[in-house]
Design a protein around this nucleic acid. Structure first.
Lengths: 220, 220
DNA sequence: AAATAAAATTAGATATATCTAAAAAATAAT
DNA sequence: ATTATTTTTTAGATATATCTAATTTTATTT
């Protein structure tokens, strides 16, 4: 099954939207995600349905098929491998890579991706902390680590808190930490285990070991 | 000035054909080079002329403009840098890189090319021995001579092949000739123009004039 | 349940890139 | 200098991907 670049982009969008717990994805949602018009989406859905990568019932939104999911994951794999390449090898900042990876992901060459994967030492996560599917589309469960257990200079993304009491969440809010925040360990104080972290590459915050051990991140 | 991938490919073809000593390049020549139909070429020439990258007088062929030449050289630069990447970093064989580089060359990101160039240590020649234009389009060309035109006992180094089809590259591989090989002309048969050459001071190989004329060397 | 609002689709355009078949222009041959 | 041949261009299709405007279908409100 061969998809055009546009089809790959739509399928990726549908995959991402499906992944947010919806039972089906609407035309308008896809249009918003793709920054395009609903009319264009309708046209494309017909094409994707013909290729059997989505199930499409007019006026009732779409579901991705197993074949579609496999293809979407392959595109995501390519995108994230290229992002690793751009950051690790070409010294791009991690917020500069998306647009270029968006182009590179459509290069059609299984051998290229296989070799790139090896060259990058089979990375499991991209620079944003998102997992890289393997060549079969399998995604590794994200190993979580408490902030106080991360090494200095290690970057990651906050994905959960152990203590989800209102008090703790208020604290999170107050210091500007939140689920999804990109973090980097700036310093660790040996004496008391407190840590200094950089949030979203701009805000530096201090927290006690106790607090840090309640915040879970995935490492980049 | 922004060109589409198709326009870049046509412009590159016109540049290459121009470089063969013609005063102007014909529609048929371009169609042959691009493996497309003359009618398609006519359409594209109109577009390229509108963008002022070629001078086009109907029925009389085209010339590339200075601006067109600059753009063609930029595309060639990207293509050849990617080829170096594929061979040096991803361990592609030098005869496997063309098709992939043909896709990669159309990625639009000046920063990417700048960084790639640095990562590859500013290479001056691609794996086929062809020079890589700098960012201003300047090319450091080496005077090259076909093996069948070298004198007996003349020594040199293979730097490029004219015909880089997979079939020819496989042949090269099979007989033990390769880009970078040291060669010396042992004998030339006047009757059919075939030549005998010594490769790397040990292996003697025999090749027809046809083959020899496709292999380019710099003379020592 | 009828009226209204929202969402989705179709109809009809535009732009790119290609093709075949027909026409026009340039070149070659008698 | 006509005629024939080759080359090139145009006219008209097809396919992709997008748009606006109009229409249809579904969902919501009264």
């Amino acid at each position: 099954m061969m998809l055009t670049a546009a089809e790959e982009n739509y399928l990726k969008a549908i995959y991402h939207l499906s992944d947010e717990g919806r039972k089906s994805v609407s035309t308008n949602d896809i249009a918003a995600e793709m920054k395009t018009k609903p009319a264009s989406v309708s046209d494309m859905l017909r094409k994707l349905a013909e290729k059997e990568v989505i199930n499409y019932r007019k006026y009732y939104g779409v579901n991705i098929t197993p074949e579609g999911k496999k293809l979407a994951l392959q595109t995501i794999r390519k995108h994230r491998l290229w992002e690793v390449f751009l950051v690790d090898k070409l010294n791009f900042a991690w917020d500069e890579v998306h647009e270029v990876a968006e182009e590179l992901e459509h290069i059609q060459s299984p051998l290229l991706i296989q070799r790139l994967d090896a060259f990058l030492n089979y990375p499991k996560f991209d620079p944003h902390g998102d997992p890289i599917p393997d060549e079969f589309g399998d995604v590794r469960a994200r190993p979580r680590i408490a902030l106080n257990e991360m090494e200095i200079n290690q970057a990651g993304q906050i994905v959960a808190v152990k203590d989800s009491s209102a008090a703790f969440l208020r604290y999170m809010d107050k210091v500007g930490a939140y689920i999804g925040a990109r973090v980097k360990i700036l310093d660790k104080v040996e004496f008391d285990g407190s840590v200094e972290i950089l949030v979203d590459q701009k805000k530096s915050i201090f927290m006690s070991k106790d607090v840090a051990s309640n915040i879970l991140a995935i490492q980049s």
